[in-house]
Amino acid sequence: MKLFDLSGRKPLEAASPVPFAEWKETRQGTAISLAPDVEVEELRSHLGSLTLIVLEFPVFRDGRAFTQARSLREYEGYEGEIRASGHLLPDQAIHFRRCGFDSVVLPDGANVKDWEDQLGRYQFYYQNTAVSPV
């Protein structure tokens, strides 16, 4: 697994995330993965015990995790790592970053330069995001 760092926070390489439903039973470790149809409020009482939340993209067109990430940051005040995983495109790099993701699991054969180029592409953005103010 290769990670790409979006935010400059060192990704937690060693963590092995457990699906949230399973983690609730076992409470093993501090890393979970969350399906896109779970509302992040369900995590509220557990956030203090978590250091990594992996949000999933079944397909890159499914943008629900963008809202999950922003809700985690803006409403729940979560400060640990948020990571994107699944079918991802480098074209989404700045959207990840601006919605509060810290890292992505690079798809097989990914061209790291595409991801780097995309992160540095724009000098300004038209909207405030509470996560990464312009």
């Binding site: 499914d62 963008f66 989404q92 700045i94 959207h95 919605c99 038209y126 909207q127």
Partner: peptide
């Protein structure tokens, strides 16, 4: 228009 342009959260609706 400006607000919606490349909105990071609402580009994959």
């Amino acid at each position: 228009r400006q607000w919606s342009t490349l909105h990071p959260e609402f580009t994959f609706l």
